[in-house]
């Protein structure tokens, strides 16, 4: 039990970082109604880009911006494959993801992983977030505001703030319409193709930013760090919706619930590791089962519990 309590701040920090990725997934999966598998690749692209640039001594904000940029590029590729080449969205994402495997290796100089040398205090001090800081804050070696929960929490709020603003603009509203009803959007003069590409870019930009934060936090990037990212993202979206959907109606709060969903996911995973003593190799299997279960609940509900008086829309996604 003490083990679990001790690991809690770390789990929350990780959950917050993955929460930013999950917000990216929310944009494609919930708003655009596209299951985008690019994220499994672009998450690592962001991490790799960040670590390589950081090791070169580049300013950390430039590194983060670069990560965001390559993520958006990955989204652009998927978007063009889907809209210009007419490839189904899910397959476009798989193609980009596969291609990114090589790209990620190339960014990391054909190595499977690259690390930040945090033994070097000067390097460590340049970081915004690090697993090390969790303990250092507790020991009083660093001020509280350097705690990863605080820093990533601020990042999350900033991301939510920007997205809340964006989806309230004319362009943002047209993006929501694109996902809600493409026919209606086109009839209202909205170029749905451009909007899909834009949404995929924003989404993957956030995913790569999240990857950059994670590689910073764990002080390394490796080719497999994004494996199953889409499932974690979906898990966060679903958990957030299941727990807070009835209370959180506002768009900003919906995004917040996604982030909270990711935190809960990581805390539960941590609990499973520390309390149930399960080999962590089984985590991906457990995650897959949990997400499959949650995705099937609305369908079963619609099938077997339909036609309740008063309940009109069954199995609706809204």
């Amino acid at each position: 039990m003490g083990n679990f309590i001790g690991a809690l701040p770390g789990a929350i920090s990780q959950g917050l970082i993955w929460g930013i990725m999950a917000i990216g997934v929310y944009i494609t999966y919930k708003i655009l109604d596209i299951a985008d598998l690019t994220v499994d690749g672009s998450f690592c692209t962001g991490g790799a880009m960040f670590v390589v640039l950081f090791a070169e001594g580049v300013n950390i904000w430039v590194c983060l911006l670069a990560a965001l940029g390559v993520g958006m590029l990955a989204g652009l590729v998927t978007g063009l494959l889907h809209t210009v080449c007419g490839i189904p969205a899910i397959l476009s994402g798989i193609l980009t993801q596969l291609g990114l495997w090589s790209v990620n290796l190339a960014i990391m100089g054909m190595k499977a992983n690259v690390a930040i040398n945090i033994i070097d205090r000067a390097q460590l001090d340049r970081l915004l977030v690090s697993l090390r800081f969790v303990r250092e804050v507790v020991n009083g070696d660093r001020p509280f505001y350097r705690h990863p929960i605080f820093v990533v929490g601020l990042f999350t709020l900033a991301v939510i703030g920007v997205l809340y603003w964006f989806f309230g603009t004319e362009r943002g509203a047209s993006l929501r319409a694109t996902g809600a009803n493409g026919n209606m959007a086109r009839a209202q003069g909205i170029n749905t193709d451009v909007n899909k590409v834009l949404g995929l870019m924003v989404s993957n930009g956030l995913v790569a930013l999240s990857g950059a934060l994670l590689s910073q936090y764990q002080s390394f990037a490796d080719t497999s760090m994004g494996k199953g990212a889409i499932v974690i993202g979906l898990a966060a979206v679903i958990i957030g919706e299941a727990l807070f959907g009835r209370v959180f109606r506002n768009f900003a709060l919906k995004l917040l619930s996604v982030s909270l969903g990711a935190i809960i996911y990581y805390v539960v995973i941590q609990a499973v590791i520390s309390l149930a003593n399960i080999n962590s190799n089984y985590l991906k299997l457990i995650s897959a089962c949990v997400v499959a279960l949650f995705l099937s609940v609305p369908y079963w509900k619609g099938r077997y519990f339909a036609k309740k008086p008063g309940g009109k829309e069954v199995g609706s996604r809204a």
């Binding site: 929501r176 809600a180 959007a185 996604r317």
Partner: peptide, 30 residues
Amino acid sequence: MMGTAATMQIDENLALAARRGRFRGLRRGI
């Protein structure tokens, strides 16, 4: 079902229609 966006508000749907044929930038959506 085809002419409106079900998950958006009535006023949001109208605001989308009010901008038909115009460039949609970063001004407020409504």
